Simulated assay, not measured.
Amino acid sequence: MKPTVLVINGPNLNLLGMRQPEIYGRDTLADVVAACTALGDSLGLAIEDFQSNHEGAIIDRIHQARGTTDGIIINPGAYSHTSVAILDALNTYEGQVIEVHISNIHKREAFRHHSYVSLRADGVIAGLGIEGYLLALRRLASLVTE
């Protein structure tokens, strides 16, 4: 059985490609999922994807991932900066967690410079566009197949 990586995308990421393309680019969430799935296949990983604009749904999905996935890649969107609840859920997860941001949150508004999720993340990738998801996936592949 292949190791499984869950890719979680938070609020407004369903609008990738349409919402502020000057910041987030023109790739859609479907493009992100397709790229992760293709790379996952080549790395011997099964990819599950999940997107929600609702904090509780993200927390529920993290809980469901316990014991059933080997790693999580999470782009929590704006919840990065506000959600202790998502941090608490991630703290119950035993596998590796990599936080991804399409934009460089450190070059943006001051309130975006802090991420609660980073307190749990085993790695953080920011500002590399959707390539950040693929870099995170490569890192998780090396960690979960060791």
Rank of each mutant, 00 (worst) to 15 (best):
M1L: 10
M1K: 15
T4W: 00
V7W: 07
I8V: 04
N9F: 05
N9P: 10
P11Y: 12
L15W: 05
L15R: 04
M18T: 14
P21L: 09
V33W: 15
V33F: 15
V33S: 09
T37G: 07
L45V: 05
A46N: 12
I47E: 01
S52W: 06
N53W: 11
A57F: 12
I58E: 00
I58M: 10
R61I: 00
H63V: 12
A65G: 01
R66M: 03
T68A: 07
I72P: 08
I72L: 12
I73K: 07
P76V: 08
A78Y: 13
V84M: 11
A85R: 13
A85M: 06
A85Q: 14
L87K: 14
D88Y: 06
Y93M: 04
E94A: 12
I98N: 10
E99N: 13
E99G: 03
S103F: 03
I105G: 01
H106Y: 14
H106T: 11
K107A: 12
A110L: 07
F111E: 00
F111G: 00
S118E: 02
L119I: 08
R120I: 10
D122S: 15
V124R: 12
E131R: 07
G132V: 03
L135H: 05
A136Q: 04
A136G: 15
R138N: 03
R138H: 13
A141C: 11
V144F: 05
V144P: 06
T145I: 08
E146V: 14
